[in-house]
């Protein structure tokens, strides 16, 4: 097999189809694409002055200086592209002293947003429910005292039956409440 001098023309199309932009990041913080870039890359984002990338490139230069041959990856970051929020990830590596950046779009199953958003929404709702559950303990205590006081009055006929019914309902409530979160400790 021979090693071609220039990259095969198909490579550019492959990168574009895979939503991958490969660029040579120069020391003056401008860049040169190394192949055809995806459509979102040629959109409205000023990549060279994007604060997230500026920061990432600085971190990457430091890291790759000490870790020769490794790849430095960013966490996901978002950019606005014609009103659409793209989730991207950048990876940096040194090839023949050049700083190469691969910026890829995370979508479909690679996009963690739907799952994380649902998880946080659920966590928030769980917190609210737990708060409501906590709020039940104080009135329940008050009810217990009131029913106890009523029982101590030696009530007659009809009333005794009602008070016993209240006491039974209270006992049921208490056993349910025992499984709910306890009053919050104020720090």
């Amino acid at each position: 097999m021979t090693t071609p001098e220039a990259p095969h023309p198909a490579i550019g199309e492959v990168m574009r189809a895979l939503d991958l932009a490969i660029v040579d990041w120069l020391s003056d913080d401008s860049f040169v694409p190394l192949s055809a870039t995806p459509r979102w890359f040629t959109g409205a984002v000023p990549w060279a002055s994007l604060p997230f990338l500026e920061h990432f490139v600085g971190e990457a230069r430091r890291y790759l200086h000490d870790h020769v041959g490794e790849v430095f990856a960013s966490e996901p970051f978002t950019v606005d592209n014609h009103g659409q929020e793209l989730l991207l990830r950048a990876r940096a590596l040194r090839v023949n002293k050049r700083l190469i950046l691969a910026i890829e779009r995370l979508d479909g199953t690679a996009d963690p947003r739907p799952i994380l958003r649902q998880a946080r929404q659920d966590a928030l709702e769980h917190e609210q429910l737990a708060d409501k559950a906590r709020a039940i303990h104080a009135p329940l205590e008050a009810l217990k005292r009131a029913v106890g006081a009523l029982q101590a009055t030696d009530p007659g006929g009809d009333q005794r039956g009602l008070i016993e019914a209240a006491a039974q309902a209270l006992a049921t409530l208490q056993s349910v409440a025992a499984g709910l979160p306890a009053a919050r400790k104020r720090r």
Binding site: L50, F52, P76, F77, T78, L87, L116, R117, Q121, L124
Partner: peptide
């Protein structure tokens, strides 16, 4: 609407 942030978003 609660749209939890995933990753970093930078504004100026």
């Amino acid at each position: 609407k609660y749209l939890s942030t995933v990753g970093v978003k930078v504004d100026k």
